[in-house]
Computed example of a mutant assay.
Amino acid sequence: MVNGCIIRIRTEIVACCQNPACSLEIADQKGNTVKGTPLLETGDAKLVARAYNLGFKMVANVATTLTVEQLEYWEQNLSGIPDALRKGFGLDQSEQLEAPQAPPPPRPSFVFADTNALKALKEAEDLAEEFFGHRPDLRKQFTMPETLPWKSVIAVYDPGDLDNRATLNKALKAQKCLKDIYEESAVENYSGSEASGKPTLRFIERSEKPTENTMGLSANEMVATKRTFLDLRGYAIAFGTYHKATGRFLDSETWTRFPHNRLRSGKVADGYWDPGCSQVDFCWFVAGLRLSRAGGREAVECALATP
């Protein structure tokens, strides 16, 4: 226990390239932020000695934890070890943050016809035709909202018969520049990985970064806002749709979290583009961890049109 925070050592070291370093905050049991200072910078000889002592204890776990591939990777990427350590220390999975005291700010409102929604719908239909095997008529299949909170959007069409694995294969791997994908945990291990069973259409902001007012929130805090967030499968579709239309990538400097997609341990899924490895990465963070470059993507879901 350090300053009221429960600290644990992650049992596996992530053998993948990392996004640029971001500031890391750990919240205590009351949701208060404890901003860490590197121990060497404290000037406290006792703390530094304790750090080295902990390091010696960690060394004993290396041979029992790393695989051959991970060993070879980190031998060639020593500069990435500090970032891996920063990511490897976090809250215990039983930790739950209190909901933010202030409600989320109200969304702006744009008349549907004044947005790029029609163009976005065509892009979604183009992706479905090429990679899902059919071309939907989304304006007939779904009821369009009268307004949207963003002037520029991405339309995310999920046909309903694809699980996480099939979606990655069709929306991402089928595109030449997106064929390489790293999964820290297999995408079928997260909750919500099964096919939804019915078509869905959602609009998200057309931005390469997550929704601005979610940046720095933990996954638990996002859930507490009661707003709708894009899930892992929707993110893969949005990523594929955006790249097919523009040739660009989502989250080359940020992470998008999927607060409702969790492993049995409670770890929360996230995704981003790793420019160093030229691949889409799906990793996880503990639910109570705040990162300044991580956020969620708020979504507006459309109802199926009545016959």
Rank of each mutant, 00 (worst) to 15 (best):
P210S: 14
K46D: 12
P199Q: 05
E75M: 11
R257P: 04
N220H: 15
A45Y: 01
K244M: 15
E183N: 07
A236D: 09
G133Y: 01
L97T: 14
C16I: 10
D274L: 12
C16E: 06
G55D: 09
A15H: 01
W255G: 02
Q18Y: 13
A99W: 03
A174N: 09
N3H: 07
E184K: 02
E212V: 04
A195E: 04
P210N: 10
G133I: 06
A128N: 09
C302M: 03
L230A: 03
E129L: 13
E146A: 14
A195T: 03
N61F: 08
T211G: 03
E301F: 02
T65W: 03
G234Q: 10
S152D: 15
D281W: 00
K176C: 02
K151C: 08
A113W: 01
R50D: 10
A60T: 11
I26A: 05
Y157E: 08
R248A: 09
P82M: 03
G295Q: 08
N32F: 07
L230I: 07
G276L: 12
T143M: 14
S278D: 13
T67L: 05
N53M: 14
L250D: 06
R135V: 02
T200Y: 06
S191T: 15
T225W: 07
Q29A: 12
I7F: 07
A303C: 08
A120R: 11
V48L: 02
N53W: 14
E253I: 12
L71C: 03
A269T: 02
E125D: 07
S196H: 09
I154N: 09
A195V: 00
C16Q: 12
T37H: 01
P210Q: 09
A299L: 09
L138N: 05
T256G: 00
S265L: 04
S185K: 09
D83E: 14
E69W: 00
A245P: 10
Y182H: 10
Q93S: 12
W255N: 13
E146V: 13
G133C: 04
Q29R: 13
A51D: 06
A49M: 02
Y182Q: 05
Q93V: 11
L24A: 13
E129D: 15
K35D: 11
A305F: 09
E301I: 02
T115G: 01
G197I: 14
D231T: 03
P105K: 13
S252V: 15
L71V: 04
A113G: 00
L40T: 08
G234C: 05
Q93K: 09
V111K: 14
F142P: 04
A219K: 05
I13E: 11
I26D: 05
E98G: 14
L121M: 06
G80K: 10
K46R: 06
A15K: 00
F239M: 09
K170C: 08
V68D: 12
T254N: 14
C302V: 04
C177W: 13
R227M: 09
Q70Y: 00
C16K: 12
W255Q: 11
A49L: 01
M144W: 11
A155C: 11
E123A: 15
L230W: 03
K30A: 14
A21S: 15
G197E: 07
A171Y: 12
A186I: 08
A174S: 14
R290M: 12
E75L: 13
P82F: 01
P105S: 07
G288V: 02
R8Q: 12
D137R: 14
V268W: 02
P20W: 00
R233N: 05
K176E: 15
I204V: 15
V48P: 00
